[in-house]
Amino acid sequence: MDFTFTEEQQAAAEAARGVFAGVAPDGVPSPALTQGRPVADDLDRALWARLAAADLLSLLLDEESGGAGLDAVALCLVLREAGKVLARVPLLETSAAAAAVQAYGGPELRSALLARAGRGEIALTVAANGRTGHDAAELAVTARQDGGRDTGGGGDWVLDGVQTAVPWAYEADFVLVPAHTGDDRSVLAVVARGQEGTTLAEQISTSGERLGELRLESARIPARDVITADGAWEWLRALLATGTCALALGLGDRVLEMTSDYASKREQFGHPIASFQAVAVQTADRFIDLRAMEVTLWQAAWRTASGAPGALPASGDVAVAKIWASEGVRRIVQTGQHLHGGFGADVDYPLHRYHAWAKHLELSLGPAAAHEEALGDLLAAHPLG
């Protein structure tokens, strides 16, 4: 299997490196210093504008919407660079939500959102964590069509339920909310910020960023703003998970680089600690973690982008990528903190903030054991050979 990146994909990654070059992860305080308050009141608007100017918010959009028409692999290359600097922007959420609207939304919805999202005029996010963070997101909200059967046409849709830990809920202009209907189908409702029948309650993530608990009480959404196509939520969920793995890979890349640099300069007994066998073995193990995270990420991104056939559905590749990303990023930051010694526990040192972000990404991806169980079910349903 050839994972050589195309010229367009490499150009997107190079553009991202240029945009993120001036971002200083230590420019935002560690969540340990903010005493329960968010680390910032808004997303990084200056960075958001630079991403828009570099056409990095429209990577997945087609030319008709002012985009580059690229795929999930290109997006993950850009997200990897974002993870290295802990970029405080809804790049993943906006890109994935816009791609879902483009692939499954109606003409009116595409016309209203896509070009504006690609230009950075609006930000989008997705309520993907359900009512508690442990249950399926599409089961946390009910959707019924007023005055008729749930056929995707006709009257407004009415939504009731709760979605927790919605990223960028206070900054995004629209939230894509998965919901289930009376006949056990899933729909995606595009809910505007401040929509009548919705309320937000502030939550603070492990990384110190502000999240929102979104409550919907008879929130009435026009039919044109509800995506009823089969498979829309499943596809969007896979793209979000794959993108989160890319962020974890970028974060892990940077932490291992920081650790290697520190170990090569920190001396004990007259020698750099990097020359000690115990240190070398630990960093080598983390390098192996990174390479496993990388290869499983590109496999998942490729399958998500192409819908390529295989013995297993694409969800199998996504599950494998999530297993390696959630476990790998945790081991990498723990080793980094251990080898940094006292610096690793210093909340003023950037590594502390990387650790907080890594924990948030690990929790977002979910426990490896759950993904292993899901993968086992897939293997049972699709025996190999």
Rank of each mutant, 00 (worst) to 15 (best):
A172G: 14
V281L: 14
S264K: 15
A103T: 07
A292G: 14
R131L: 14
H371Y: 09
A127E: 07
A179Q: 03
Q9F: 07
P309I: 10
A112M: 07
E257C: 05
G130T: 00
A123W: 01
A98H: 01
Q145E: 15
Q195G: 04
Y104R: 02
G212L: 04
L86C: 12
G36V: 00
D289F: 09
V177M: 03
W168C: 06
L378Q: 09
V175N: 08
R215L: 12
A370L: 10
A32N: 02
S207W: 09
R210H: 10
G27N: 05
L92F: 03
L236H: 06
M1N: 03
D62R: 10
G66R: 00
D55F: 08
G67Q: 03
D184R: 15
Q35M: 08
G208A: 08
Y349T: 03
V279L: 00
R210D: 11
F276D: 09
S205M: 15
A112C: 01
A169E: 13
D184I: 10
A169M: 13
A201L: 07
A165W: 09
H355F: 11
R144N: 12
G120D: 01
S30E: 05
R331Q: 08
Q35I: 01
L57I: 05
P178E: 04
L290N: 04
A72L: 15
P107T: 00
V162I: 10
R237N: 10
T206D: 15
E257V: 08
Y349C: 05
G197E: 12
G133D: 04
L290A: 07
S315R: 13
T4R: 12
T198H: 02
A370Y: 01
Q337C: 14
V23A: 02
P313R: 03
V318R: 04
V320C: 05
A311H: 13
A13F: 04
Q163F: 02
R303T: 11
D173A: 13
D150Q: 15
V166K: 07
G316I: 02
L59V: 13
V320D: 08
A16G: 01
N129Q: 13
A305C: 11
L33S: 12
Y349S: 03
E362I: 03
A356M: 12
T206P: 08
R220T: 07
E81H: 02
A263F: 10
A300N: 07
A241V: 08
L70F: 08
A314T: 15
L351N: 02
A123C: 05
H382K: 09
L240W: 05
R331E: 08
R303H: 13
A319Y: 06
G231F: 07
A179I: 01
L378D: 08
G22N: 02
G161E: 04
G366C: 09
S30Y: 04
H352L: 00
I332D: 03
G133F: 04
E14H: 12
